[in-house]
Simulated assay, not measured.
Amino acid sequence: MRLGFSAVVGLTAIVGAVFVATTFTTPPLDSVQRGYRGTGQIQSYQDRAYTRLTAANQAPEVIPAVDLEGEKASVGYKNLTVLGDLDKAEFDRLMMAITNWVSPDAGCNYCHNPEDMASDEVYTKVVARRMLEMVGTINTKFKSHVANTGVTCYTCHRGQPVPSYVWFTEPNLSHASGYAQAPNGQNKAAAVVGYTSLPYDIFTPFLKEANDLRVISQTALPQRDAGARKSIMQAEWTYGVMAHISDGLGVNCTYCHNTRSFTEWNQSSPQRAVAWYAIRHVRELNNTYLDPLASILPANRLGALGDAPKVNCTTCHQGVFKPLLGVSQLKDYPELATPLTIKK
């Protein structure tokens, strides 16, 4: 028996529907209520994605504690301008941990000349001192962001000499003149803003410069509010950096905001206040510790405009709302939980 054209089309549609229904299914979802009931502050997670992120955010094994030798590291070693007051055994243990966190393949030679360990000729040793000072500052000065969980070198590096997620200042691309719209720092297919037309350098305005995050003017007439003259660009920057924060922490807008009133602080979650401090924290790190390293780093470590690599939210968080899922390494390495200053 021959089937008519319409019957063939109908049978094909049925087979196609069965194929789609059995092949492309919605991943299992889970949700966590972050705010009061009725506020819509619920976080949704794909089980498959969260399993992958959980596996990627495990803290490394802790090096067992050591017995103290009763001698300061500065006595046993030369040219210790930081951590020299530690017991020599504590110092050795911490250096072993830092090696595992940052350069497990190159080992000690990543920062040291093996023929003269006290020498400062390897630039990474000079950088490492400054990074240790930065870690001490984070763990003591910025508790409004990191609380008592704190950070270690591994929080960002994850076993790599350069963290996977750093950023450089983006050059403003030019194009042919004529009727084409001036690029004005946007309309470039950039992953950081989800390949939208939003400005592609969303970090410089907030994580290096101190621009306001805002999407609306504070007054009706621009001439009465000087800041409103920049409100459209500020809004585009803000949307872009909010998308970055959402992606970097693996959350959606309702992690911090109540969608019925995004601007109202008294209807937001406590996480919004933490994010407010975090933006200022990251900005200070970039300006005080990281950007000044441009004069020390070799050319291959610098960006297109000659600037040093800087950090953003993803550098530490790497897709989860708390770096390493909230596991604190400071209880095992308390040496990093105190202020560290380079001695001249």
Rank of each mutant, 00 (worst) to 15 (best):
F262Y: 09
N258T: 09
M233Y: 06
Y277N: 15
A243H: 07
Y239Q: 07
G319H: 05
K230D: 13
D212Q: 12
D291T: 15
R224H: 15
W237V: 00
L221R: 11
D247Q: 15
L302E: 01
P270F: 04
R224F: 15
M233T: 06
T254S: 15
N286G: 06
R283P: 06
L297C: 07
A278P: 03
G306L: 10
A210H: 15
F206S: 03
T314D: 14
M242K: 11
S269E: 13
E264L: 10
D291L: 14
I216P: 00
L297F: 00
G306K: 09
L285W: 05
A226S: 06
A278T: 15
A243V: 07
N266Y: 10
I202W: 04
P199E: 10
E284Y: 13
I245A: 12
I279T: 07
C313N: 01
V311P: 06
W276F: 14
A190Y: 06
N300M: 04
A220V: 02
T204C: 00
A210Q: 15
V192S: 14
D307K: 01
Y277I: 00
K310L: 00
A243Q: 13
N300K: 06
D225P: 01
Y195R: 15
A190G: 06
V193N: 14
A278M: 09
N286F: 04
D307S: 02
V274G: 03
A190I: 08
F206A: 05
R214E: 12
P309G: 08
T254Y: 03
A235S: 12
K322M: 10
R301Q: 15
S269M: 05
M233C: 00
N266I: 09
A308L: 04
V282S: 00
A273F: 01
K230G: 07
A189I: 09
R260D: 15
N287D: 05
R301M: 14
L302G: 05
D212N: 14
C316N: 11
S246F: 01
N286D: 05
A210K: 14
H244A: 12
F262W: 12
Y289W: 14
P222L: 05
A278S: 15
A278W: 13
H244F: 09
R224Q: 14
C253G: 11
Q271R: 11
R214L: 08
D225T: 02
V311D: 03
G303Q: 05
H317W: 00
D247T: 14
V241T: 06
W237L: 10
S268G: 07
A210M: 10
T259F: 03
N287L: 12
V192W: 01
S197V: 09
P298Q: 01
V274K: 14
P309R: 10
E264S: 14
N287Y: 03
V192C: 08
C316G: 02
L297Q: 10
I202P: 09
